[in-house]
Write a protein that binds this DNA or RNA. Sequence first.
DNA 1: GTGGTCTAGACCACG
DNA 2: GTGGTCTAGACCACA
Lengths: 131, 131, 131, 131
Amino acid sequence: MNRRTAIQIDLDSVVPAYRQITDALRVLLVRGTIAPGEKLPPVRRLAIQLGVHFNTVSEAYRQLAEEGWLDLRQGRGATVIERGLPLRSDPKKLCDLRTQLRNLVAQMRSAGAPAKWIAAELWRLLEDVRP
Amino acid sequence: MNRRTAIQIDLDSVVPAYRQITDALRVLLVRGTIAPGEKLPPVRRLAIQLGVHFNTVSEAYRQLAEEGWLDLRQGRGATVIERGLPLRSDPKKLCDLRTQLRNLVAQMRSAGAPAKWIAAELWRLLEDVRP
Amino acid sequence: MNRRTAIQIDLDSVVPAYRQITDALRVLLVRGTIAPGEKLPPVRRLAIQLGVHFNTVSEAYRQLAEEGWLDLRQGRGATVIERGLPLRSDPKKLCDLRTQLRNLVAQMRSAGAPAKWIAAELWRLLEDVRP
Amino acid sequence: MNRRTAIQIDLDSVVPAYRQITDALRVLLVRGTIAPGEKLPPVRRLAIQLGVHFNTVSEAYRQLAEEGWLDLRQGRGATVIERGLPLRSDPKKLCDLRTQLRNLVAQMRSAGAPAKWIAAELWRLLEDVRP
DNA sequence: GTGGTCTAGACCACG
DNA sequence: GTGGTCTAGACCACA
């Protein structure tokens, strides 16, 4: 994990630290910036880098392991699992995420974002993620 | 509020009831299904319909009032404010929502959704909202 | 929860406190000593009674809720769910428990327990549980 | 140790490897499948067979030696000790194992196992062990 | 006043 | 030296 994959978190945010870490790493994983076979830094090291308790990083890793991104074992570190996208599809979760997307779009519109702007944002995100 | 604008909530969901109500109403407001000038049902009536405490509905209305959708003066019920989209733009909030969108897209990809599917979903949502 | 259902835990045991609580309560639930519809004491009160942190009790309740014994909601306490035995059967878990039983019996034999003694113990347990 | 006494472990299990080995061997020892006077395979050979570090196997052997099953003197391999069942009885340990049995039975009932099924399982295990 | 979340710290398990 | 467990304490969400 080098400069290319550095992540940053905001301890003053209402979003819990562990979730910020999970989210940041998931983006890097989806995008392929962190490739299968690579090892993530040890929980304690990353914790020091980010200025958080190691349990906070640990929780983030555990969640990504549950999502099928990491192989996480005692004494063996955290390794990114080899697998191609699309991963195993989880219909129930997808339905839930679709609802979240609907609500998020409504919030964006409510906050004054034009439909065009939202569409443009999404294009950027999907291109980012495509390869 | 008639059949067209009926909303439904799931009391067993992990999403708190008041947020389900806020979200559902916001979608209807953004879409224009509930038009400016209309009155929302009285807190107590909607509460009974949904099977929740009236404080729960009250909280939902308050939040929508804060977002600029409702006029909530004492004893006069909740009236949808007259205003055209786009509303006042809130850059800080938009930035935050953009981050949420990024993470949501990563989660969808992580859950096995093809990029095309995500794009199609968003299309539907934006068209739904335009007219 | 009265004298009949009082439980006791040993803080010096190698078995974690939360598991001792889960185990003790599960026995009472299986046996029917704590009946469906009853309310368990609030986490904080039981915690004080047992001399542990409320999170410890909380974890125990959560686990029992996952097993389908409790309805556990914010602000509404912990209520024993109405349902008849046998509950929904979980084959994978049962297979795992069978393996555990096999190993436990081997350990008992290894510790010097005659086969007859083990059988007698089990009879007592099953009779206890039957109604 | 031949085909009859081959053991298998699951490296993906939550149960640590060394415990799987201890448990599997103890069952064979209690059952008499591995007889007194026999030699267990050398630590390194078994480790390779099972795909684990030899320390893992070593730990398993040590534990069985503590339980009085193996003679483990340096350079002479692991020999099964001559002794008849019942072995020296350890009341304190038995009490603990009885508690474990009680909790295991409750878990089985909780997972949907009928009392009859549990009894049948135990029968099989005890008969298996008797001869 | 209920249960729940998040983070912290001491200690353990495993390789 | 790796990740993991258990308990604690401050604070939050909900009714």
